[in-house]
Amino acid sequence: METFLQVLIDGMLSGMVYALVAAGLCLIWGVMDVINFAHGEYLMIAMYVSYWLGFLANVDPVVSIVASGAFIFILGALTYKLIIHYTIGKPPLAALLATFGLAMLLKNLCLNRFSPNFLILSDTWLGDKTFQLGNLIFPAPQLAAAILSLVVVGLVYAVISSTRFGWAVQATAMDRDAAELMGINTERVYILIFGIGGACVGIAGGIMPSYLSVHPEVGSLFGLIAFICVAMGGFGSIPGAFLAGILVGVVESVAGFYIAPVFKYIAVFGLYLAVVFLRPKGIFGW
């Protein structure tokens, strides 16, 4: 029983991080109906930002999240300005293929600059510390990442659902032309949404070097899992993506522990198929 609880906790902690990565993707998908294939690569770049800040300037990842969040915000806004902007109104696959090209570019740029080696940041504040509650162990870096995820996703959700800017975003998501006629600058909304979506994944990537090693391929799997979470949660639903993220984390951890480590992602992708076959628009979709 205790083992099961521990497995469950590990799954929930990693699931919360998936949820934060997915929330950024969900925002972009929900507002623009664009699948950003380079989302995992944003995460990878955020991890490199945090790693190099830690390695060269001795800044701890807990502090670096500000820098990595801002960096990916700018990268996201630039992606919109330079690429996505030109694919709007074109065939729906155009944006997906263009961001696939971008993902390839970013991944190999990092491979070229930073080598394919796994880079690990040592002596971080959270490092190998753990909290203990009875017999249950909470690794400090994962716990901090999970709390951070909860705060950031909550903040984004609050902004979207109850501020003037958030209403403008919702209006733009529903009908761009009508929103434009109501005096909303939809171009600005798109830039900011791409930026904020990037910032979410930037913050997630910022804290991850405290417990994960950085390499150019690290983003691919996270990106794929983020797609799964967003689609499982339901089109553009942030609570849905959050719930799906936790579910994915738990399934991954349970399948990895009780069946075999190699089956954990098969279980995760199988879970997605099972959910959408039952509810073709995701858990919270309509």
């Binding site: 690429i83 263009a98 993902a103 970013l106 190999n108 740029l109």
Partner: peptide
Amino acid sequence: GGVDLIIFGLLIIIMVV
């Protein structure tokens, strides 16, 4: 170091756009 794939990725973006 993947220079070929950097260029390939860039060309895909340009062609799609």
